[in-house]
């Protein structure tokens, strides 16, 4: 049993007019075997949460902690966090010209496990993982994300999720911009990952649509840099009907 615990997390970014607080005290605990969905309007800080946990240098943690099985992640480098078992599927995966998907995956797998994967089985594993998300084998030889469509980039993120198989995965709006077929394929990949039952998932999304395919155990409504309400899957259903207005208004009334 593993645990990713976010406590009192405050994060700011530098803007032209000085530092700006984005996260204002986030508390959230994810245990292996659990699927958590974070939903919220644009600008509520959902992506900031994802990138802060992963260690993006743009985001400065001013208060609070993130621990994975008791290890303080905020004191680790980006790659150390990944090696501790964290994975972030990005909303806008980065293009890296000249670095093939196969080379990238082999380098990552080697870094994560401490030994190079066996060549014969690994090539097959990569091809299987790519094909399962609807990317043909030629993608292994292509430059990482370069010239991929938006949907292909997201599929590639999920192929990585399955191959690298981290303890905890954060999916940052993986569903955004996907057509219904791609959404289904991506969701199936995510469900294969969670079906192992000993992995934790934090699904960040703007839309309830993906929750038709991936069933969350917990839903957190994220507004203005903190969790405004928590509940089970039924909370997502009410969001589908009511939208975020109620929560946004409540936060404004508090302010």
């Amino acid at each position: 049993m593993s645990e990713l615990r976010i406590s009192g997390l405050h994060v700011e970014v530098d803007t032209e007019s000085g530092p700006k607080a984005i996260l204002k005290g986030v508390d959230l605990t994810i245990r292996s075997g659990e699927v958590h969905a974070i939903m919220g309007p644009n600008g509520s800080g959902k992506s900031t949460l994802a990138y802060s946990i992963a260690g993006h240098p743009k985001y400065r943690i001013t208060e609070g902690s993130v621990t994975l099985d008791g290890v303080e992640l905020t004191e680790l480098t980006v790659d150390e966090r990944a090696r501790a078992g964290l994975f972030l599927a990005m909303q806008y995966p980065i293009e890296v010209p000249g670095v093939s998907v196969a080379n990238f995956l082999r380098t990552a797998k080697t870094a994560l496990t401490g030994e190079a994967p066996k060549v014969r089985t690994w090539v097959k594993d990569v091809n299987v993982a790519l094909e399962r998300v609807g990317l043909d084998g030629s993608f292994a030889g292509r430059s990482l994300n370069e010239g991929f469509s938006g949907g292909e980039k997201k599929r590639n993120e999920i192929a990585q999720l399955e191959l690298l198989n981290p303890k905890f995965a954060i999916l940052d709006e993986t569903d955004s911009g996907l057509d219904i077929d791609a959404l289904r394929i991506v969701s199936e990949g995510v469900n294969r990952y969670t079906a192992q039952a000993d992995r934790g998932l934090l699904l960040i999304t703007h839309y309830t649509r993906i929750l038709n395919y991936i069933k969350p155990d917990f839903v957190h409504v994220f507004v203005d840099g903190r969790v405004a309400e928590e509940g089970g899957p039924e909370l997502a259903d009410s969001l589908e009907i009511e939208g975020y207005d109620r929560f946004v208004k409540a936060v404004k009334a508090d302010a």
């Binding site: 993006h56 790659d79 966090r81 995966p93 980065i94 990552a108």
Partner: peptide, 22 residues
């Protein structure tokens, strides 16, 4: 680019090497 590679566990040195190589 470095963040993306490192977020998959690749060390900073190795990530730099990959980027220059690429």
């Amino acid at each position: 680019q470095l963040f993306y590679l490192r977020s998959r566990g690749i060390s900073e040195d190795e990530a730099r090497r990959l980027v220059v190589h690429g």
